[in-house]
Structures are given as structure tokens and as C-alpha cells.
Simulated assay, not measured.
Amino acid sequence: MSSAPLPDVAYKILTREQLDTLLADGTFGGAPIDIADGYIHMSSAGQVRETLEKHFAGQDDVHLAAVDLRALEAAIRWEVSRGGALFPHLYADLPLAAVIAHAPVAWNEDGSLALPG
């Protein structure tokens, strides 16, 4: 039985303040929930909309950072989370060098999420 390959890009949802920290410092140590859990939560392209709706509903000025997982190698673990799905978790600070694009959360006319990068 073969499984689909894991994606090379994941998304970190950031507040404007968190994005500013990443851009100014060149690294991001995590949101309060990341620090509490011991890893930085990220989502695949197929998971990010549900993550936004579940954890960021009603929040203004939220941004998505597209992260090149190949640049993070061993610090990424795909672990079972919501609904039994595998989610990418980063067991290190997020370096700006691994961020390939970032943009405010935006929606396409058809209601789909407009992903950066």
C-alpha cells in the first residue's frame, strides 16, 4: 500500500504583529499556542482553510506564510492531529529564509482561499 508523498510547502498563519517579528528578526519562535505545545503549528494547502475557520474566525489582519519544508528538513514532523490527519509541525524556530512567500489572508471570488506563493 503506497501513500501520497507529503507536500514540500506548508502554511503558517500569522497575525500582523507575528509577521512583523519574523520580518524584523529573521526568525519566529512561535505564537503562544506554539510555545505551549512545543512546536510551531502549520497546515498543508488542503488544511489551511479549516485551520483559519476554526482558530482565526473573525480576526482581522491575518497573514499566510508559505514555508519551504525542504529547507527545514529534520525539524519538520508530520503528526496526527485534527480528525486523524497528518499536520506539519516545526520543532524549531521558523527562519525567514524558509518563507517563500507571504500575503494577507484573501479569498478568491469563488470562495476558495487565495494562497501565497
Rank of each mutant, 00 (worst) to 15 (best):
A92C: 06
A103N: 09
L115F: 10
R82N: 09
H102E: 07
A31Y: 03
P7Y: 02
H102T: 10
D25T: 15
L14S: 04
P95E: 07
V48R: 00
L52T: 03
G29M: 10
S43L: 02
L19H: 02
A103D: 14
R49M: 00
I35F: 03
A106G: 14
T51Y: 04
V99M: 04
R82A: 12
Y91S: 08
V99A: 01
H55P: 01
H63A: 00
L72K: 06
D8S: 02
A45Q: 07
I40N: 01
R16Y: 02
L64K: 00
V62M: 00
L86V: 08
A75T: 08
D34M: 06
E73S: 15
N108T: 06
L94H: 06
V105T: 07
L14R: 07
I100V: 12
L115I: 12
G38L: 08
A97N: 12
S81N: 13
I13Y: 02
G26F: 13
D34N: 04
L90D: 00
R16F: 01
Q47Y: 02
D68M: 12
P116V: 11
R70E: 01
L22P: 13
S3D: 15
D37E: 13
P116M: 11
D20R: 14
G38S: 08
H63G: 04
D25E: 15
A75Y: 06
G29P: 08
R49K: 03
P116N: 12
P32V: 08
L86E: 14
T21E: 13
S44K: 06
A114R: 15
P95S: 08
D68I: 11
A85F: 12
I33S: 14
I13F: 03
F87G: 05
